[in-house]
Write a protein that binds this DNA or RNA. Structure first.
Lengths: 127, 127
DNA sequence: CGCTTCTGTCAGCGATGGCTAACGTTAGTC
DNA sequence: GACTAACGTTAGCCATCGCTGACAGAAGCG
């Protein structure tokens, strides 16, 4: 349904309770009931959270009799890590570039149009 | 208001449009209007998104006349990276442990209580 | 087969979230 | 001071979300 795995993972992680569940299942393989017992909400709610996590690829299910055991699926976080690192690197680079530009030189446009007053020259341009 | 910075950052990033904004501002310092021009929604919507990102510490604002320039703030992602790495490591470790346990040996409990039927021994656990 | 255990699913409800339109505000221009 | 440009803010609308309660189904036991 959702063609973007990163989006789905991010949305799944946006919920505190789902993060808690994931943390639990990252240390041990647990049954649905055991997970639910760790919280003070209904098992229904937990089941739904687990479904979301499963659809996001952050969880794997393994059946054992009537029980369903869940454990975290680290590869599900791979896309996110990639996204974060990319963003991190880009922002750091840009920050550095801006500081350098600020620090004296005219500035290094990259693409030179649309320059209006991005840095230095904060006020009074009037003659 | 929200004492958990990771939670706030995660919730901010859960929205695709906010990620787009962040991507834009990670490459250049842009004014609110310039950001808004890149999308086909109202400037109001963008302004609200920017506010969320700012509150999450993922953005910094700099004023220049009537304009407000924004750029990504890489440190805002630090907590998330930490969270992800921690989760990643834990899940990987657990996965490895489970595989080893599966592969023959009784299993290496670590903490030994609450062992009921987590792996091998698929049925009959009742007293 | 009947009973119990463990669990997912569905319907409905209150809360949250993103969007638009109208308004308020600040800085610069004449 | 009047006007304009560039923004943020507020109120209200509709969709989504998380939660509960009731129900359904599969597996083991007598």
């Amino acid at each position: 349904m959702n063609p973007d795995p990163t989006d789905e993972a991010l949305r799944a992680l946006a919920e505190p309770r789902r993060r808690d569940i994931l943390r639990l299942v990252a240390r041990d393989e647990l049954a649905a009931g055991e997970i639910a017992a760790a919280f003070d909400v209904s098992r229904t709610a937990i089941s739904q959270h687990v479904t979301v996590l499963k659809n996001a690829g952050l969880l794997v299910e393994r059946r054992d009799g009537t029980r369903r055991l869940y454990r975290a699926r680290p590869e599900g976080l791979a896309g996110l890590r990639e996204f974060l690192d990319e963003m991190w690197a880009g922002a750091l680079d840009t920050a550095r570039r801006l500081v350098e530009a600020e620090r004296g030189v005219v500035d290094e446009p990259g693409r030179s149009d649309r320059r209006r007053g991005t840095n230095r020259d904060s006020s009074r341009g009037r003659t």
